[in-house]
Design a protein around this nucleic acid. Structure first.
Lengths: 209, 209, 209, 209
DNA sequence: TATGAATGAGCTTTCATTCAT
DNA sequence: GATGAATGAAAGCTCATTCAT
């Protein structure tokens, strides 16, 4: 009465989910750019054509796998401090650590898609609310800093938005240049003390007091 | 009798240089990721196969074209202040403006190559000294800030390296997220006052004085 | 307990008949050549695989649907005059009008199958007696003319068989060439006076009397 | 200096011509409908992809092969009598014989394309003048009969156009019904005396004199 | 050395058919 | 019997690379 199930798909999982998971694994390993439908089917241990029973085309599957990848990564990170919560320095440090881990996992997956309109557009269309690939990290940090500013722990004339851009940018900066120099993701190292140094610089600036 | 020259190659230029220039034009227009050798040959108005008389393969040609692109872009920007030269704020602002312009032109060209080992490795191999794709902007800014620190205009306990990472990162941050959301390069806008706000934040930090 | 019935199949109809009817509708709309089993199942609002419970394969279903299509079309046309019935000219005209209408409806459906042995062979095998796709129009016209000849209204040395071939051929001729020039069926027009002119020519010939 | 030549292509022939010829052979054998690019390449003993160096796509190649097939067939037939040339009966007979031979060779090739807009549209676009697939046989016969009519050998009140439609239609009629009954082309037989009987019927009509 | 056609592996996608449920 | 997802063999087409000329 119910239709057949693919041999390689565990009972607990639907085939679309299984395919997305397989694609997600490949994306985590080698990025989303060079994936082929055959490679995905093979990774899922499933016939070549199945994907078209569940997704409009390759791009839709990859868009969903990318979203799943982002969610998986984010789900594995400690939650970000909410605005008004905890002390400034600890909070900032949490943002930096979050950003580094996130970008380390996400940039390699996404970068190859730049200038390939298809998948990114598809991803943007998946859900309009949540289409910030990095989960709106910069915006959330801005909000956090604004709350600190309202509480008087950040100077009234400081610029939370610029600061957030710099902090999140520093996280990018750790990942992107090695990537663009051909360093494999696995070999990218976070220099010891990175978060602390970024936080300190952000807090006190360069000018002598 | 000198060897035959392709009709479309000007006398002043060698064929390899001509090919590199053609590829560079295409890269500037549409990035390095989707280029085909046929498209390059057509742009150069030269036979499909010539490239293999002068380069090992497509990857080498593209690597050289990328290097040329970076140099062209950098050559079109005002020179960076040297360490010890000018005042701190103006100098920093020059770095930010340079970084934004550079990344706007360079990231779209490079990003598509992430996780495609070939070209980037080739580029890194081209010249070991100079393989920083962004021309070592971060290192140069670090040096600049260190000189300011030596001159006492930057606090002795400040962290020039972290600051440089944040400033250059802020420039990335302006370009990369829109790119990853599918915004075409031409539509990426630099918010007014961006450089000034980054510089101010970098100089004075967030903490009230 | 009688076996389960597909939801979309009306009580008055067996599932095979329902499938044949669905395929027939599609054939009338777009010909038999490009049909897919999925399209047929969808039109029948029935599961993809059922067809294999009732037919050997797609070809058998399509062969039956073609036969049904021919019968439906023929059933919608006024009956042909029987041999010996009515007057010669009116009778002939009826054959022409029948032939034009029949071929307009049937040729587009069949033509795409030429040189695809499967379906046509299947159709021929369905019932050995009645496998004339056009319902044996030519044979019936021959019989009609022979009866007229016996009654003396057609010259004794005339050739009923040749005449029937020419008349039915003229009906084909109206439909096939436009079809082969890519004109869509809906746009094929019967020139006014067609039947009358064919009949007159058939009756009196070209030679001056 | 000149580029490479495919091994299987004779010196006397260009590759596009070679491909067209290969496709034409396959069309003559099995019609144009089911051809695959791989089958054509194999028949031409040439690599799969070549065709795209010379034709926009499969449809263009097939359209050209169809045109070539028509021309080849027509070139192998005795020329049609021109209007005003020879006597009426002999001329008419020539048209019938031409029509039968032409349609025997051409209908199987074309029929499968009905309702497949692509190739036929392409063929119509190849050359606007000459796009009558059967070489405008009906029109030419009409002209021939009109000339006979002007010369008084065809009755003044006869209908050359209707007669031409019937004659050419009779030629179709000989070929199409067997084809639609699944009879392979090779087995289609022209009944002895066919041309003579059609001509006589056309000349004298059915009505007793 | 320049040419540009030839090569063929590889791509995404379709679809008749099977079969566990 | 009915279901509809799974299967996998094609299909049309692209493109880096080779090589006779």
């Amino acid at each position: 009465m119910s239709p057949r199930k693919a041999a390689a798909v565990p009972d607990s999982e639907s085939l679309p989910a299984h395919l997305v998971a397989a694609a997600e694994r490949l994306i985590a390993r080698q990025g989303a750019a060079g994936l082929t439908v055959r490679a995905i089917a093979k990774e899922a241990r499933v016939a070549d054509g199945v994907l078209y029973n569940h997704f409009a085309d390759k791009e839709e599957l990859i868009a969903r796998a990318l979203r799943a990848h982002v969610r998986t990564v984010r789900g594995g990170l400690p939650p970000l401090p909410r605005p008004g919560e905890g002390d400034l320095e600890t909070g900032l440090r949490a943002y930096v650590e979050h950003g580094v881990a996130l970008h380390l996992a996400i940039l390699p997956a996404f970068a190859g898609l730049v200038a390939r309109p298809g998948v990114l557009a598809r991803l943007a269309g998946l859900d309009e609310d949540d289409h910030q690939d990095d989960g709106g990290l910069r915006v959330r940090l801005t909000d956090f800093l604004r709350a600190e500013q309202a509480a008087g722990r950040v100077a009234a004339d400081a610029d939370p938005e610029a600061a957030a851009t710099m902090v999140v940018g520093a996280c990018h900066e750790l990942v992107l240049p090695p990537l663009l120099s051909g360093v494999p993701v696995e070999e990218i190292r976070v220099p010891p003390g990175f978060a602390g140094r970024v936080v300190a610089t952000c807090l006190h600036g360069l000018v002598p007091r």
